[in-house]
Design a protein around this nucleic acid. Structure first.
Lengths: 200, 200
DNA sequence: CTCTTTCTGTACTTGATTATCCAAAATATG
DNA sequence: CATATTTTGGATAATCAAGTACAGAAAGAG
């Protein structure tokens, strides 16, 4: 019973994620966000209240979508544990490859946000989202590692929880190294080398 | 033939590094910098021209001091190649331990700056410093790895350049993971696991 | 001892960026 | 087809941090 929106809320969140994941919160202006989403200022504020709120929603959206993708891979019964980890690396590398074609590294909202204690303190929802995401991701990873130890593709000696933190650490490191312009094939080799204590 | 400074320029740079490495450029205000260095606004501007200039000098200072420390370790003929890498990990872990005692992660000006394309574009000196630092670090690392392959402490199969990128990636990843509150002992275990393709 | 030069402290200016306001537009509903 | 209701666009206000100005303080040189 009123004028409908001319834009899709999810499309705006996608655009916001694209900006935030490379520029971070502080260095992304609301104007950039409007521009990227092709939405006028007041529409954005009308729909999302404030830059902070939009960031929280974008972060939520980001971890939900990436979490879902990782979930389908890491909990895929068709694959061995080791294959799941390698597929995960492939996905991350794909993101970097696509970003590289656009002339920059993919960035990562999680790495950005984790590295910014201020951001986490300013809005505790950010902390909560990151904590939750981390727990979820570590749980999926250790699950895949346990599966790999049962199917024989991953060495029995390693502690699954440690292995999970390792995988998470390596991927974060890749996000950083990707910024240095290293080509994606090297990056993939490095990733697998970093996980070699699991994958042998 | 004039009034001398009441502060030490290097002390100001140290303070600036302490702020920048945890908060990043955008989220560190000049007021914070003054506060941290116990220096008044005009003194700071008189000595360092602008926030950008101060950042460049701080970054330079940061990579110079950390570079020097890494250099003494990674080029230490008394140690095997593997021992050099392990000692490097110890140094990073020490930084994190000290920071943890102060209630936060150590942060890292290099990781922060690398993850911020805007920062690098705004002042090309930042790019140059980071590029130079990376090359230097990779060169030291691959040198240590080659030394390890000669003294038998590092597997012959690995490409020293790849190994260098791996070590750099793992350390960056540790800087990120440290922000999640993982205890330092776990962190150290993860570091060694990530480097296991070199250290076995 | 005084003069010159630089440093220091405070208050102010400026510029950018976030957020708001309000009138006009659009449309589903009755 | 009128109306209620929300969105939209443009302009405006409010805020906040970077940088500047200037007067006064400090100390070495002559």
């Amino acid at each position: 019973m009123a004028r409908p929106r001319t834009f899709d809320e999810t499309a705006v969140l996608d655009a916001a994620v694209r900006e935030f994941r490379v520029h971070g919160f502080a260095e992304t202006s609301t104007e950039q966000l409007c521009e990227a989403a092709s939405v006028r200022r007041s529409s954005l504020y009308n729909a999302f209240v404030s830059k902070d709120e939009l960031f929280v929603r974008a972060l939520q959206h980001y971890v939900a979508t990436t979490g879902a993708r990782q979930s389908t891979i890491l909990a895929d019964d068709e694959l061995t544990g080791a294959e799941r980890l390698r597929t995960l690396v492939d996905v991350v590398m794909d993101e970097e490859l696509q970003a590289a074609n656009r002339g920059h590294a993919a960035g990562c909202m999680v790495v950005q946000s984790l590295m910014s204690p201020d951001l986490r303190e300013r809005d505790e929802r950010v902390s909560r989202i990151l904590d939750r995401d981390l727990r979820e991701r570590l749980s999926l990873l250790s699950g895949a590692i346990r599966a790999g130890q049962i199917d024989g593709s991953i060495a029995k000696g390693v502690d699954p929880d440690d292995g999970a933190v390792l995988a998470s650490t390596v991927i974060s490191g890749l996000r950083v190294t990707a910024q240095t312009g290293v080509d994606v094939e090297t990056l993939r080799r490095i990733a697998l080398a970093g996980l070699s204590s699991l994958l042998h």
